[in-house]
Amino acid sequence: MKRSIKVVAAIIENEQHEILCALRSPEMSLPNRWEFPGGKVEANEDIFSALEREIAEELGCRVETFKEIFNEHIQEYETFVIHLLSIKCRIIEGFPTKSEHSTLIWLKRENLKSLKWASADIPAVEQLMNEK
């Protein structure tokens, strides 16, 4: 049976209505694919606290989450299954800087499809693009 991983992803929008996109580094699993930053939910951790912790660790800034799930998707890969919970949030302190990712960029919704996304993130990308 494949290992199942619960993961949270941050949909961070700036004042210019651009979304933060992160490119997975060549050393990461699913290398050179774009994703929304985030990470694994630890045992006994709620998803909103997990996302705030992951963004602080990965991007060196603090976010405030909107207390609802924006998109939920289960994606099966060759060796594992990801249960991805995408959550909208905003930066309340600092500015995102890359530590694990190769690149961070801000993109308008209508340009999100121009990137080569990790499969698990595609449903959230499509939902964002359909938003007004």
Rank of each mutant, 00 (worst) to 15 (best):
Q16N: 08
A118F: 14
F95Q: 12
R33Y: 14
I105A: 00
S119W: 15
K6L: 14
I69Q: 02
M28F: 06
F36P: 00
I82N: 04
E57S: 14
E52P: 03
K6G: 02
A43I: 15
G60A: 10
E131N: 00
S119L: 15
I12D: 02
I69M: 01
C61D: 07
L115M: 12
A50Q: 00
E27K: 11
T97R: 12
F36R: 01
K132M: 14
V41G: 04
E42I: 15
T97C: 09
E13V: 10
I74K: 07
N71A: 09
C89V: 08
W117G: 03
S99F: 09
V81S: 02
H73L: 05
E45C: 09
K98E: 05
T65W: 09
I122R: 07
T79E: 13
I19D: 01
G39L: 10
V63M: 11
V125N: 05
I92T: 13
L107W: 13
A43M: 14
K40M: 15
N130V: 07
H83I: 11
A9F: 06
V125G: 01
A9T: 07
H101A: 07
I87M: 04
E27P: 03
V41A: 09
E15S: 11
E58R: 06
A120V: 13
F36N: 06
P26F: 14
H83F: 13
K2Q: 05
K6T: 13
P96E: 02
L128P: 03
L112M: 03
I82K: 01
L51I: 10
E42H: 09
P26N: 04
R90H: 13
L112S: 03
